[in-house]
């Protein structure tokens, strides 16, 4: 018997020829919870994954003018109420197991979207500050990175600072770069994180990586707000 990791309802799996004969991906979410997640589909900004009718959104055009330092971000889900609650439960309440909710989608996004250079990519998690780590006990970005079949290098370090979520866009963009490099990385990097909001975090990390010789920086995020 399977239960939904999020709502604990029983997962009903219909017995059909295909479920009986093939090894199916193990569903961890029930139909109702899965249904509340919205995959980003259709046209999107090719840089940041925001749902967008033309090729590059205004934000990313601005970033380009300033000299953007990420090649591309790929996000899987729209940031809606459900995913917000799920991520809260997972990272702030500390229910580590809930990363399983994203495993299948994360893996398949990685395989499909980064197929060309999957072999050469090194996965870089966004580090937590020490005080956050004391609170949570685990780094959600690392937890996601570990679900991919790719080498991980923790080359970033974070100076301690305030919580991101409490800041507005302006304050975020203006702030000094909180990251530093512990060891230069010479291959292409894939940053993995939970939410892409303004893209500042990813770009600050990318800035440091590139400054120390990393040729290309991509990012893969669960939700795009």
């Amino acid at each position: 018997m399977n239960f939904c990791v999020y709502c604990h309802e029983r997962i009903e799996q219909p017995l059909t020829w295909s479920t009986w004969l093939t090894v199916k991906k193990n569903n961890v979410l029930c139909i109702s919870c899965t249904g509340k997640l919205e995959m980003i589909s259709g046209k999107r900004c090719k840089v940041c994954s925001r749902a967008w009718s033309s090729s590059i959104c205004l934000d990313c055009q601005q970033w380009r003018e300033l000299g953007d330092n990420i090649e591309r971000n790929y996000s899987i889900f729209h940031y809606n109420e459900t995913i917000c609650e799920m991520i809260t439960q997972w990272k702030f309440r500390g229910d580590y197991l809930l990363r399983e909710m994203f495993r299948n989608e994360l893996k398949s996004a990685f395989e499909k979207q980064f197929a060309n250079n999957a072999a050469s990519l090194t996965v870089i998690p966004i580090p937590l500050s020490e005080s956050r780590m004391q609170e949570r006990g685990f780094n959600q970005s690392l937890a996601l990175a570990e679900m991919l079949d790719a080498p991980i290098k923790q080359v970033l370090r974070r100076k301690s600072g305030e919580k991101q979520a409490k800041k507005n866009r302006k304050a975020r963009l203006k702030r000094d770069n909180p990251f530093s490099i512990t060891e230069p990385l010479k291959q292409a990097a894939l940053i993995v994180d939970d939410i892409y909001t303004t893209g500042t975090t990813v770009r600050q990390a990318a800035q440091q990586l590139k400054f120390h010789g990393c040729p290309e920086v991509y990012s893969l995020t669960i939700a795009r707000s």
Binding site: G94, D95, Y96, L97, L128, M133, Q134, R136, G137, F138, N139, L142
Partner: peptide
């Protein structure tokens, strides 16, 4: 019950 790898003491903990 489930487990998480603790980033503070580098051990797996039940929660």
């Amino acid at each position: 019950f489930s487990e998480y790898p603790c980033g503070i003491c580098q051990q797996k903990h039940l929660y």
